[in-house]
């Protein structure tokens, strides 16, 4: 697989380390009343879709960027790659 890094261009996927669902960006509030449930769902439950999947990859053999990659889990086609930091900042602004 090739991942089209937003800064570095297409890189072989073997340079990256995979983490999982990009929902891991959305860490719950530790002081919320339902924090215990929210952290359980955050840490353990997954949509696990057969189709487009937003997921986190770390460019360990490269520039150490965390990326949010949108990849179809049935075809492996990648349709979007963004810096996770940009995604995280956007989500902060929108929430």
């Amino acid at each position: 697989m090739l991942i089209d890094h937003p800064l570095l261009g297409p890189r072989d996927a073997s340079e990256f380390v995979y983490l999982g669902d990009a929902s891991l960006i959305d860490r719950p509030d530790w002081q919320a009343d339902d924090a215990a449930r929210a952290f359980h769902d955050y840490a353990y439950l997954r949509d696990n879709p057969a189709g487009p999947h937003r997921e986190l990859w770390f460019h360990e053999g490269g520039d150490r960027s965390w990326l949010v990659v949108t990849r179809d889990t049935t075809t492996h086609e990648i349709t979007d790659v963004r810096l996770a930091r940009d995604v995280a900042l956007e989500r902060r602004r929108s929430s």
Binding site: V17, L19, L24, I25, R27, L56, F58, E60, R64, S65, W66, L83, A84, R85, A88, L89, R92
Partner: peptide, 12 residues
Amino acid sequence: RHMEFVRQCLVP
């Protein structure tokens, strides 16, 4: 890797 995850994804 974990610290970079926290830095970039959780506390950007």
